[in-house]
Design a binder for these strands. Sequence first.
DNA 1: GCGACAG
DNA 2: ATCTTGTCGC
Length: 231
Amino acid sequence: MDIAALRAEQLATAGKIIRHDDFAFTQPALIAGADVGFEQGGEVTRAAIALLRFPSLELLEYQVARVATTMPYIPGFLSFREYPALLAAWDKLGRRPDLLLVDGHGISHPRRLGVASHFGLLVDIPTIGVAKRRLCGQFASLAEEEGALAPLMDKGEQLAWVWRSKPRCNPLFISTGHRVGLKSALHWVQLCMRGYRLPEPTRWADAVASNRTAFQRWQQGRDEADFFPPQ
DNA sequence: GCGACAG
DNA sequence: ATCTTGTCGC
């Protein structure tokens, strides 16, 4: 792998990211979350995308894809490691969401092309980056209260919001992925909260990817509906 | 040179 | 991210 070439590719691609609202909906009807994990010591990359109805946030569909890992994790180059699996899961999805929440940063990236932005551009859909940790930029210390907010600044521009979504939890870093402005990014994420640190689309994608009990129960309920379809 | 560093 | 048990706190 040629890191210098990837860096050049990022710089060229970042210029194509649309940082303002560029969508038809007043409110999304379908919203999705994407999460990536690894198996077998990193040999296999597993991506999960969960599709939810908005604003009820009920899980409608999910897809999981497993592909051979092609790149190691290098800070600043996460998208090259994760997007092949994300694309595979995306292609399996029966319906297209109006908006997609991606785990990781959007434009709050050294070259303004985090995985949320890169993937959003690849599939040409509005995306928002929801990261759990800072990659670059600075922000003022955040108040302890739930809802505390601060801008993430880098080189004189705001790249994201640092937002405490839940008390006694580390804040989230919410940024423009593609075709969504910063203000809207925070707005939609806030409408996806249901009392946990992470927004529901992200939580469901994580639950699916990790086969958590919440997902198992949902799947069991769906199976029963198949055996005993409502008259 | 040194520290920082999404998932 | 992943490997993993108990444990502290609300």
